[in-house]
Amino acid sequence: MTAKTAARYRARAAVTAERDRHGRTRLTRLRSDGPLAVREAEGAVYLVGAAAGPLGGDDLGLDLEVGPGARLAVRSAATTLTLPGDGESRFTVRARVGAGGHLDFAPEPVVAVAGCHHRAVTEITLAEGATLRWRDELILGRYRERPGRHTSRIDVTLAGLPLLRHELRLDDPGVYGGVAVLGTARAAGTLLLVGTGLVGEPVTGEGLAVMPLAGPGVLISATAGDSAALRRRLCQGESAATPAGDLPSALQDARAATPHH
């Protein structure tokens, strides 16, 4: 599958989690490809960069399949740097979650390095009754560095209806540097929770908005001066979005669940 031509990668990794007849989740597919390696460890599947990047020109993809009633947590071992190269780099994640299934995707931040030209595309298809925890964190360049061009879009449908279509576009500093978009923040992130039992009223804090969606989900949106502050704000938002400090039962189960191989 891996094709490396003119220093470009085209790779497609995949993970499938299914619920067995004993009610346990089994990883029935764990496919690494090129620079995109997936490893099972500590109750989660880890994305492990086998090479620097993505670099301009790379086209990486990850397919996540969570069967009905199954649970999958995805993490990453380290921060991802999107680097300049030959043209646009692309990272496409496609995830499908079946009824009663749960996907918890929370990798480490992505750093949009100076000169990068990157597009992240996420398409999530949730069946009725599926639940989701999905975190995206973006750091605008390395220390004191102006970020390159970076666009990330997430599209989530639930039971066939659009739930969230949300794109963060860093191409014109005059636009994204304005108070209407990111202002002077150096880090921006969202945490999307889909399920029942989430907060019904919006909550705000400094650089933080917890926004109940029209459908059964909450988008937590935060901006901050650095990645640590961003993570704190997202955590704060997550607490606010899950009343009384409790995660909805489905999400709680998922946190405790350990995939079995």
Binding site: R153, D155, R165, H166, E167, L168, R169, G178, V179, A180, V181, L182, G183, A188, P202, T204, G207, L208, A209, M211, S221, T223
Partner: peptide, 13 residues
């Protein structure tokens, strides 16, 4: 298009 404006979202809330 689905271009977001996190600042506008927060200000609105």
């Amino acid at each position: 298009p689905a271009v977001s404006a996190p600042g506008l979202d927060l200000l609105a809330e």
